[in-house]
Design a protein around this nucleic acid. Structure first.
Lengths: 250, 250
DNA sequence: ATAAGTTGTTCTCAGATTGAGTTGTTCTCA
DNA sequence: TGAGAACAACTCAATCTGAGAACAACTTAT
């Protein structure tokens, strides 16, 4: 039997039925707090519970494309803003009974976006909203999405260390203080302004000057800040390591 | 319709047929060189080509369990050695036409093992072998496995920086020089022995002394080396960063 | 037995990086 | 107009890193 003959006699239905979904942990920063996109499920299972945006991957689409499509559908996002959004694969979740319907393997993705408009509810969702991650504990989430979100947040925190992706939470032009704000809200603690400034400018390719400054000083005073845009580095060398927390102590 | 009614009337066959496989990038160090486990495919598609060990995930098994099972089947590995092996999820690959038979999403895993015996061919494989990664370029690999391996190698290199997983390439007791050997072969360049020694012993929880020493000196002379075992840290703080390569230069 | 060479471990020291704080100036708000 | 805020630059000590030297403990070869 050669390869052509084999494929001709092949029946996909002989294989165990598994469904593949894509889910998205979409993060943004609003009013100085880290927010997460959630949708309320409009159909069983977990009807009425909050869940990550996502759904079944379509036969002809790539995993990343499916994640981007689901995000677009459930946020009403499109065009330039959708294109600028950072999307990466996070991990896959496939515990056999994680979905009561059938065996479902979910390929979770992680997205970073600048402050986006309030979401428009899509076909599968009654509602959608940006929820501060600090308010997550009080929500009952569908499936194993609490775990997925935890993994996504930890991935986000660590990505800020060695990649320039913090800039993806900001508009094309930003100040060093705004960039520091991203680190502070994602990491959850304040950083030394002077040292952060020195470090950011010293890492090759992290940011590049636009030559311009902000139109006005800060809301509570202070000089106009210089504007920067993201540089061309894809990895930060040396990295911006977060200060060691208690874990280090032995 | 409540949730029970919904599930009763649910037919998994309504969803698009997707198959999920698990593949394993299994790495070990033999004779000072990084080796990778490959199997020769005994059936179409890609019959006769070399591929990563792997196969369809079974209906009742977790993804990681499937990866461990496939590895066991195709190496004849079992018991203590299989249990000590480090296994983590790498990434999922789901480009629509990556498998000519049907839509297949592969959840790739990454394994680190101490020098293992030569593999025993399993049911799906004519042959299996540990191939030096330096010899990969000359092989024609099945599916997108070349890409998966690339991703696995990069993940392995970076994991050595901030986790103590280098110890998983060694037996329970090892010398600092052996540990340095792991870093040198995975990273592909020599490290300063004195500085490496200082660094390893200064990172809390990386290694702990057994109090014992090797029975003999090195094969070409030198004193007996002290023996260590893996400590209880799961993350290295501060990390052992690999020296910046050319990428840093801008 | 001795010599020659190798290697594990510790030390030294200069240069770079970091953490913490200070200064000067520019801006907003009351 | 004055008080407070904050961007940006600087200082300085403590720590970390890279490079090399020292030295004792071991090997193999003679």
């Amino acid at each position: 039997m050669n390869e052509q003959e084999f494929l001709a006699g092949y029946d996909p239905r002989d294989y165990p039925a598994v469904a593949v979904t894509v889910d998205v942990v979409a993060l943004t920063i609003r009013e100085g707090a880290l927010h997460l996109l959630l949708v309320r499920r409009g159909a069983p299972p977990f009807e009425g519970h909050w869940a990550l945006p996502g759904g079944f991957v379509r036969p002809e689409e790539d995993l990343a494309a499916g994640a981007r499509r689901e995000l677009a559908e459930e946020t009403g996002l499109g065009g330039e803003r959708l294109r600028r959004l950072h999307l990466e694969q996070l991990a896959s979740y496939g515990v056999p009974d994680r979905d009561p319907r059938m065996r479902v393997v979910s390929v979770a993705h992680l997205a970073f976006a600048p402050d986006l408009p309030d979401p428009a509810a899509g076909s599968d969702a009654d509602e959608a909203l940006w929820l501060p991650v600090s308010a997550l504990a009080s929500r009952q989430l569908a499936f194993d999405h609490a775990r997925v979100i935890e993994d996504g947040l930890e991935r986000a925190r660590s990505k800020l260390e060695y990649t320039p992706l913090a800039t993806r939470f900001l508009d094309a032009e930003f100040t060093v203080t705004e960039l520091r704000g991203v680190y502070e809200t994602v990491w959850g603690h304040p950083l030394h302004p002077g040292n952060f400034h020195r470090k950011v400018l010293s890492v090759p390719g992290f940011v590049e000057s636009t030559g311009a400054s902000t139109e006005r000083g800060g809301t509570r005073g202070g000089p106009r800040a210089k504007l920067y845009r993201a540089g061309d580095a894809r990895l930060l060398h040396p990295a911006l390591l977060r200060p060691a927390r208690e874990e280090t102590v032995r």
